[in-house]
């Protein structure tokens, strides 16, 4: 027999003076292959058309729909209700500014991150449309792609102990981005320049190594490895700089 699902959903519309933060409860008959994408849209269309949440590609590719699902960050679109108990509690991601109900402002947070880590290829060369592209080893291209697969959903930030305590922590997503550019020979930045960006408590040295980030990453990025590599590299950079300073 189909289950009757109970949804406890965080509600608050900061734009509505009559709204205050609370939880609303909704019930749905579970259907075959029901995802939270289907369930939330059904609730909005049939029970409460003011309910705010974000979906975009609904295929696990765009990262729009991360929410707290029974206390754990995840993509709502690819979470099937049959993986969950009958009672499902949905909250917005912490850390990001609330827009309303389950919807948070990831855009502003990530833009600030790109600007901080200067998330682009730094080069003194100029593009010449009339010559062949520079060569790259395919295996290296695939390694870069592995880290480039991050969809900036915000799950790793929401699950991060440090990020939950200090607002200025850049999070695993930024560290992964730095690791991606360090690996890319087209980016001419030196270790010292990378160190200036993340060789601080806001960056790699703020990481407590709890690795909630890797546990919740919906793309299964090797965040733990990247954090380890960065910590070693940045540690060496720190030692070198200290040595240079003293000599």
């Amino acid at each position: 027999m189909a289950r009757r699902l109970k949804f406890n959903i965080f509600r608050y519309n900061p734009q509505d003076p009559d709204s205050s933060p609370h939880t609303d409860t909704f019930f749905l008959e579970e259907t075959e292959s029901m995802s939270l994408f289907i369930a939330l849209n059904q609730i909005r269309e049939e029970q409460d058309s003011s309910l705010q949440f974000d979906f975009c590609c609904r295929a696990g590719i765009c990262g729009a729909c991360a929410i707290m699902i029974n206390g754990k960050p995840g993509l709502a679109c690819h979470t099937l209700t049959d993986e969950l108990p009958e009672e499902i509690t949905l909250m917005p991601l912490p850390i990001f500014k609330l827009i309303g109900d389950l919807s948070v402002d990831t855009g502003t947070w990530f833009r600030a991150m790109y600007e901080k880590v200067e998330s682009w290829v730094h080069t003194d060369e100029t593009f010449d449309p009339n010559t062949d592209e520079g060569r790259m080893d395919n295996a290296l291209a695939e390694e870069i792609y592995e880290l480039e697969r991050c969809i900036e959903c915000g799950c790793c930030v929401a699950a991060c102990g440090t990020a939950n305590m200090r607002e200025d922590f850049v999070g695993a997503v930024a560290m992964n981005r730095i690791a991606r550019f360090m690996m890319d020979p087209r980016d001419e930045r030196t270790d010292k320049e990378y160190f200036e960006i993340i060789g601080t408590d806001e960056g790699i040295f703020g990481c407590m190594g709890l690795l909630g980030c890797e546990d919740v990453c919906p793309k299964h990025l090797p965040l733990q490895d990247q954090l380890g590599i960065l910590r070693r590299k940045m540690g060496w950079s720190a030692v070198k700089q200290l040595f240079r300073f003293k000599s």
């Binding site: 682009w120 449309p129 592209e133 520079g134 060569r135 080893d137 395919n138 480039e148 890319d184 087209r186």
Partner: peptide, 15 residues
């Protein structure tokens, strides 16, 4: 395509 490579796309390459 080349310009996008110059800007950072990790295009798959000829092996």
């Amino acid at each position: 395509v080349r310009e996008m490579a110059f800007w950072g796309i990790p295009w798959n390459r000829v092996v």
